[in-house]
Design a protein around this nucleic acid. Structure first.
Lengths: 204, 204
DNA sequence: TAGATAACCTAACAAATGTTTGTTTTTTTT
DNA sequence: AAAAAAAACAAACATTTGTTAGGTTATCTA
């Protein structure tokens, strides 16, 4: 029930603490994490079954406990990895030069790209939060990520009096909800982001 | 596993088929539905436990099966009732006269109001969809609801070439995601809707 | 090469959980 | 009031599921 108290760095790379010689161990761990991500994305936290995750990772259910002390810890690790990936993609996109609107659009495009086609880890992040216990370390991660969008929105040349906080939440909400209606045959992520920004750009 | 094949009307008002004498049975059924809504909202579908739902409704777990043939059918009923309530609130709000922008703003405000402060039924609608089995009747309901917003967005005086479909999805997504950050101490639902519309209104 | 450690497997436990069956109480109908 | 139907109980069943304990094989170190 209670998430084991470990630092987030150790959570992401537990082998690093003992020196960088994690030869065999990290491989299987990554396979396990990927399998867990797939199931958590499809079924949600309480819907995912450890036996199925283990099977997909090529091991038995009990073996999971060699890597993670509980199901919740496994979930937190997947979630953290998801935030890390989205964060990295957005950082890379926002690094390229451009006017504030262009930078925001690029960041939104990267966010969408990770979310919609970046695999299972990213999608787990915007799925349900399980119990309250795992909540605290996870919202900390997410809040840190949202700070990047805060900076991007703050840089926009907007009329005075515009509530930039609500604007940021509106944009992030619209982005995250695309999961519900996105179809690969339709607009690609970058085009969606372009349209979203377009609706606002001319106005201000 | 398989949802019992009943019409959606019967699903909402099963007593109505035998004549409109829904006296006692509907009361207990409504209590049960309300309890189920609360738990499905808090824990999600697979996280909710029938024994807890039954206890809150003042009965035992087995008694649920007098009203619903399975857990999934119970969930579908809650979901359907949620859509019905949101739909009714939005209909009432959009009925008042006003220019297209004002009508859209009113509808969005009503949608948010139901979603954020309208109780458990509405929130279940925007929580996770469980298995694929229950999916078909539910997305039909949801799609029917979204048609109302389609009409509202189509009525907006926008420049030619604007993709109204994506605009509609962006707005609905932003609205639905507010659940993640809404706080009662902050802006009320109507104010949030006003700001959302305001970001676009001046632009077009 | 011997020993230690990492990386699993096997098997089972114990609790949780959706569901069923038969019975009893309550309400309605005749 | 008697019979019939509705509404609910009580108790168990059959899985499912997270978790644990001890054994076994591969890998690395000294």
């Amino acid at each position: 029930m209670a998430v084991t108290e470990t630092s987030l760095d150790q959570l992401l790379k537990p082998g690093a603490a003992k020196g960088a010689r994690g030869s065999r161990r990290d491989n299987r761990r990554d396979v396990l994490l990927a399998a867990a991500a797939r199931h958590f994305r499809e079924r949600g936290y309480s819907g995912a079954v450890l036996r199925d995750i283990a099977e997909e990772a090529g091991m038995l259910a009990g073996s999971i406990y060699y890597y993670f002390p509980s199901k919740e810890d496994l979930f937190v690790a997947v979630h953290a990895e998801g935030v890390r990936r989205i964060s990295a993609a957005v950082d890379a996109a926002a690094a390229v030069a451009g006017d504030p609107w262009g930078q925001l659009e690029a960041a939104m495009g990267a966010h969408l790209e990770s979310l919609l086609e970046g695999g299972d880890f990213a999608q787990v992040v915007i799925r349900d939060m399980p119990t309250d216990v795992a909540r605290s370390p996870l919202v900390a991660l997410r809040d840190g990520y949202e700070d990047k969008f805060r900076a991007l929105v703050d840089a926009l040349p907007l009329p005075t009096g515009v509530d930039r906080g609500t604007l940021r939440l509106m944009l992030l909400g619209a982005l995250n909800w695309t999961r519900a209606w996105y179809r690969p045959e339709g607009d690609p992520p970058a085009r969606i982001a372009e349209k979203f920004v377009g609706y606002l750009r001319m106005a201000m």
